[in-house]
Amino acid sequence: MENVIELKQVHKSFPNFQVKDLSFSVKKGFVTGFIGGNGVGKSTTIKMLMNLLQPDAGTISIFGMNYNKHEKEIKQRIGFVYDENVFYEQSTMLDMRSIMKSAYAKWDDELFHYYVKEFELPIKQKIKSFSKGMMMKASLALALSHHAELIIMDEPTSGLDPIFRRELLDILHSFMQDGEKTIFFSTHITTDLDRIADYITFIHNGELMFSKEYYQIEEEYAIIKGATELLDRDTEKEFIAIRRSNHGFEALTSNKAQASHLFGDSVLLEKPSLEDIMYYTKKGAEGGAAINT
């Protein structure tokens, strides 16, 4: 399978934070959800993918090319959506259209007007008067109108109401129909990914936790619930993190088969949500696998 994005040992340092040794790839024709809490390096990674930031070390290749030599070719093929307004506030959708149109070789006016109509966007109204939802639709319309092969989005669903979030996911779903397009988007609202993501890339504190197919996560990870007596030094090793309460324990494992074999029928195995995985991974990484509540 062809990789649209490839990061190899990417490193970027800031005074208070760093992205460490980040390597993952994004497959062509699929939706990859990029998850992690706030401030763990998602936006930094997306900025590096857009060449807004350059890594201190490591390589980033997009469509098999690097930004040093092929910046314009790469960007011609990317559509971007950010979680903030990056357009001139005083301008209208029509003004922005002419700016974008002159930048992209494959700009398609017909497609733009299709999206404008579909999203019910007022094209002569100043962008600063747009609501958060309209702003997102406007960004999407502008990102999708030049036949981009890769859509990169930074938290597109944050701040949107649940109805529009679902609409947005439908739009993205229909965009993916021809199998040639790729979407990479970051979010911390993990329920969005249940509907659309084929792959999940998870980072925490600037480090990659995993990058896997969605179904694979369901196969490997499990929430185990049982009596506290079952826990000892050996069994605790099976877990990423454990939450104890008066009623027993609840823990996350990344090796469902082994845990199932080890505990048998004495515990309850549940399918974890991505939120569970993020929560326990964060707790596990913060030192010690045990969480007492």
Binding site: M50, E71, K72, E73, K75, Q76, F80, Y82, A103
Partner: peptide
């Protein structure tokens, strides 16, 4: 000055311009 906002820098640096 109109182009000096951080967001506008992000816009033009994301478009196919060097």
């Amino acid at each position: 000055m109109l182009d000096e906002k951080r967001q506008i820098h992000i816009l033009f640096n994301s478009l196919p311009y060097t």
